[in-house]
Write a protein that binds this DNA or RNA. Structure first.
Lengths: 239, 239, 239, 239
DNA sequence: GATGAATGAGCGTTCATTCAT
DNA sequence: AATGAATGAACGCTCATTCAT
């Protein structure tokens, strides 16, 4: 899948176990990606079926199966692509920045700001994909097959990105005990707050459209305070 | 549903819209609750069906429908019960504690520590319910019906608990801008870290059994630092 | 399933593992039996599906599944019913016959003569069932599941009938070494010759309609000669 | 397909209607034969598909279709090859034997003894093919297309072999009324007993491995007694 | 109130086959 | 000659739900 920025064009690779035939290798494959994002957005992952997708792209289920063995794997493909793309954005945005604090700040901004469409990738609507990730990505791992899928390495993209950011934290404060937990919390929370803002506003304080970047603000502050060296002076509660 | 502690026995009420016939009003109803928790734990919410549940309780689907209009509502019932029960625990543990900091600390401990079985409620295995909540509760709102269900007030328990804790935060630091977001982040993260520890350990730093309470430690520290008055002196990144 | 002869009415029981809900316990069940025989006869077991059957009985697949877990089991049910019915016929025809030779002769006649409709059983067309057994019964065991099914006892009816006749042979000539093999050969050959007469006449010598009972004649002679005591004086071939 | 014995090398021809492109004319064709036997043996003819076969030979379904128009025809090809090979063995083993009895005896031994691998034909594992014939060959004719296929002459190999042996019987006893039926019964029974010995031992008396040749013994005795001139003195049963 | 039976709808999957290259 | 891609059609099965008892 091609991504271009400033005229540079790179290709994002997704783990081969996630598809049968590479959806990037043909027009039909790209149609599948494009419309699966659209359709999941419209009707939700539970209602999304290969039959409906096939109907929409004017083809048949058998064709879709040629590319993806199951809708689970398709979701995993989409989220993996998203995390790869995010990592690429991060890489680009932080390269040549010497200050680790600065790199962390940039990384958090990238991770937490709402995504809007971008025409670097012709058949991927990043804005739509972002909404899919917000509402559905946790279903990629919240299921019975998670262990088997993890053994197959299907969550590598997510884990790699998490690690990349955790590594910056370790650089800043090698003593901090929960870098990975902090990053995964931020990554998930960023999406959660977006979802809550839209559907369950009582559970958040950020506004629906978040034009002022409150999510970024909230989470950046959270992280920088958390990793500040030195213990807080607080009293332990009784048992 | 009855809960007893120190010999006191109270009844937790779940919103009436969540069930047809009150499952607490009959033996059959209680069997349904008991075995739905067990079954969801075993096979996951996606594979869980009223047919399988009926088989297990030696009855028929029609009987289950008498109590719950759909498996969605049953899940909502279970999670609501869980949040109500959590709020009750909180209430009990913080009553008569004057210091807001202390109350917050206690609340966070209750919210974030793993739950183990407790025989206060004969037909609810809280340990099992906790595992259901960890792995499945987000599916209660991550679906297309969330807005309609929210309008019906079906997430009241969750929101009330979130608010209760957010209010303590406001008491401590009225200036803090994201109390609700912070609490919902902590509530979800606490479950998430538990899930990650078991299935995707690369995404967390807490150990699978968390006997030392690292999750509580991690999140308590996070919260207290976040709400500490006074801004961090940090440099803004370029655009 | 009821069978009547001379005004007597008995019920043939088929092993309970072969069905979900007893097809004899309801009208719908009896319709399923009746039309599955008809349909298999018309289009063959390979083309026979629960969908087509459901269509024919004006119901749905789900209803059929209530009675039979798979078309394999349905076939097994039909053949088991057939063998049970055959054993019942045998029992009736041989009871009070003292001569073992005579009993064997009667048994062979029953086993090998073509079956024509009989209105003892209202919703089973024995003639049609006989044609199903001739053309399809071997598929009940010629498949990968045979061992598992045998362990479940699903071939008991066939084996019991085989044993019943083999026991008569042992009574006549306890020295004969292959009573079971001889009987199973006769049972299968009887159907095979019927099938060959209709479809591959070069492989048999009996005429299509076999009004003169040549199959019975051929096989009866075969059996009685085989079990005649005393070895044939024949020369062994070289290696 | 080449067969060699004692250094002599002959080619067995299979009816041309059974294939598109001659599978013996290319490496790919021979791979198809080799692996179809292996695959049918492993998963059974019902589960066997051109897709799975293509996968195994590292090619595509389209390629297989170039050689065989359907899996039915492929099975017919394999069984025809088997019967041709059997007839060839018979021919070889009986040539120059003057005594008809002796020839029959030899023929029966060839027909009824279990086959083990033989390296006369490099890409046909006769042992495996034998197992396919035992378990699957009857499906070549037990289907709706039998009449059309028979009209096309697709069962010629089977019928020719049957006739060859029946002719020996006629030579021995021209009065015997069922020579073809007797031979087809023996041919099928020989496979059936082999199958029963392995899967439904209650239906036979021969042991699973039959190292002592009981099948041959059982069937040879059967045949020689059957064709012995002179009627058995037996009493007819009443109606 | 609980149950047995039935049903419409749809899902995920696979198959045999064809066409263009 | 071999292959890659696509497709129409159907299959087996399960689900959520309803109705009559």
């Amino acid at each position: 899948m091609n991504v271009s920025a400033n005229g540079v064009r790179v290709t994002l690779h997704v783990d081969e176990k996630l598809y049968g035939k590479d959806p990037n290798s043909s027009d039909m494959g790209r149609r599948i990606l494009e419309h699966s994002i659209g359709l999941i957005n419209e009707i939700g992952f539970e209602s999304f079926t290969f039959r409906k997708l096939a109907q929409r792209i004017g083809s048949t289920e058998a064709t879709v199966y040629r590319y993806f063995p199951s809708k689970q794997r398709l979701l995993l493909y989409l989220t993996s692509w998203y995390w790869n793309w995010m990592e690429y954005r991060l890489l680009l945005a932080t390269s040549n920045v010497v200050s680790a604090e600065q790199r962390l700040r940039i990384a958090l901004r990238e991770l937490t700001q709402p995504i809007v469409a971008d025409d670097a990738t012709p058949h991927i609507d990043e804005g739509a994909l972002y909404r899919v990730v917000v509402a559905e990505s946790s279903k990629a791992y919240l299921n019975r097959d998670v262990d088997a899928e993890n053994r197959e390495g299907l969550f590598r993209s997510y884990k790699r990105l998490c690690r990349t950011v955790a590594d910056i934290i370790k650089e800043i404060n090698p003593e901090y005990r929960y870098p990975a937990a902090l990053v995964s919390t931020v990554m998930e929370s960023s999406h959660m707050q977006k979802y809550f803002a839209e559907h369950l506003p009582a559970l958040t304080d950020v506004s629906q459209h978040d034009r002022d970047g409150s999510t970024t603000d909230f989470l950046t502050d959270l992280v920088f305070r958390a990793i500040q060296p030195g213990a807080l002076q607080v009293q332990q509660p009784g048992p």
